[in-house]
């Protein structure tokens, strides 16, 4: 039995998409409900990884010429790279904020309002 058939027998595309949807939802809820900036950032990373999971699942279940679709796997590496760049910049800004205000909470970001 080759690998593609094995994957299909044990878990279907739907399973992967449900897990990825759950990850996305949990990430979104974390961003909307939590108040700590680091946690918000973790939620965003989770949403990005949900997209990665569904891309890999789509690549496996929509084979091109017998093998998995490579396009989406290449895209996935771009997403990982961009997410890493985003974290590098993001954490630097969060550290700068902590130095200036000694806080990690969104409620304390209140100097901009009319």
């Amino acid at each position: 039995m080759d690998i593609a058939n094995f994957a299909e027998a044990s878990a279907t595309l739907g399973h992967y998409l449900i897990v990825s949807g759950l990850l996305f939802g949990i990430g979104l809820m974390a961003v909307l409900l939590r108040r700590n900036i680091i946690i918000l950032f973790m939620g965003v990373e989770m949403m990005l990884n949900a997209a990665n999971l569904s891309l890999v699942a789509f690549s496996r279940f929509h084979p091109v010429g017998g093998g998995p679709a490579v396009d989406s796997q290449v895209f996935l590496f771009f997403i990982i790279t961009v997410a890493a760049a985003e974290v590098a910049i993001g954490l630097a800004i969060i550290v700068a904020l902590y130095r200036a205000k000694q806080t990690m909470h969104v409620e304390d970001l209140d100097s901009l309002r009319f």
């Binding site: 990430g27 965003v44 961009v82 985003e86 800004i93 904020l97």
Partner: peptide, 16 residues
Amino acid sequence: LEAGIKFLILGAIATS
């Protein structure tokens, strides 16, 4: 800085 943080979090949500 505050503008930067707000832009960062909301921009990252839009990206995902």
